[in-house]
């Protein structure tokens, strides 16, 4: 499969601040790629470089086979969808009227409106005025808007931050379905659980640099201490290295019927982030 995003040694400076530095990564077609980092890490800036809202300071950037000179063209914009941290709807208009506008701007049939509302579980709410919607419902309409034109590539900037678990679950379900239908997703988040649940690969962004990049399971394995954590019925906590030398000791505990619980050490992405950067993900 081809690479839909290619980023090589990209740097972005604002006057004094270097928001992004030596950023390199590729995103494959059909992937959900996550950028995980605390507030101020440079996540939003990275998306804005790819949507053409900001220009890079240095490096090479290619999205959908186009270089940044083409990012302002209609043909490029028609292929990308964006849900940013401050995307907005027209408050005085209904959900339907808002989506109608975007259907027409992207020259898609109005039948798409039902399809996208269905996908974000908002079908039946078309007539509601946007100002009367809860924050979670509004976010789901914004998500529906972001892919109403069936973009090849969808940029999402912290789509579930400050949402309750119910709405977050709705959004995650919609994103998985969209991805199954072939949409490549670039997701910014500071929620390690979200990254672990949704992403095929994640990049850890800290102070404008990528610190790690891999599949969540590979990262967990890499940063695991590779030990068995055993709790016995005597409420003893044992940590035993996962090596051939220790096989007999573990087998004996099992044979004795002493093992109440046993699991391998499995750090969360948050633990790993803390381990690498010394910073919490908030």
């Amino acid at each position: 499969m081809g690479h839909i995003i290619k980023v090589n040694q990209v740097q972005k400076k604002f006057q004094q601040t270097t928001a992004l530095d030596q950023i390199s990564f590729h995103v494959s077609e059909g992937e959900i790629f996550g950028m995980l980092g605390p507030s101020g890490a440079g996540k939003t800036t990275m998306i804005k470089l790819m949507t053409g809202e900001l220009g890079k300071t240095a490096g090479d950037l290619e999205v959908l086979g186009k270089n940044p000179d083409a990012f302002h063209r209609s043909s490029y914009k028609a292929q990308i969808g964006v849900l940013s941290d401050n995307s907005a709807l027209y408050d005085r208009l209904s959900v339907l009227d808002n989506l109608k506008l975007f259907c027409k701007l992207y020259e898609k049939p109005l039948s798409r409106i039902d399809e996208v509302l269905e996908l974000v579980n908002m079908w039946g709410e078309q007539k509601k005025i946007v100002s009367k919607l809860s924050k979670g419902m509004r976010q789901r309409v914004l998500l529906a808007k972001s892919f109403i034109h069936q973009p090849k590539l969808l940029f999402l900037d912290e789509p579930t931050s400050a949402l309750d678990p119910g709405n977050t679950a709705h959004i995650h379900r919609s994103l998985r379905k969209l991805n199954e239908e072939g949409t490549t997703i670039f997701l910014n988040t500071h929620d390690m659980q979200e990254a672990a649940d949704l992403c095929d690969r994640v990049a850890f962004l800290h102070q404008g640099k990528i610190q790690e990049l891999d599949r969540p399971s590979a990262l967990r394995y890499k940063y695991s201490s590779h030990a068995f954590h055993i709790t016995t019925f005597a409420e003893e906590e044992l940590v035993i290295e996962n090596t051939p030398d220790n096989a007999a000791e573990v087998a004996q505990l099992i044979a004795d019927g002493a093992v109440k619980e046993m699991h391998t050490d499995n750090p969360t992405l948050g633990d790993i982030f803390l381990n690498i950067t010394g910073k919490e993900l908030v």
């Binding site: 809202e53 995307s87 907005a88 701007l105 808007k145």
Partner: peptide
Amino acid sequence: EKNTLRGLTLSPAS
């Protein structure tokens, strides 16, 4: 102010 202009400029509309 409401940031809806961004939705328009990110669409194919010039």
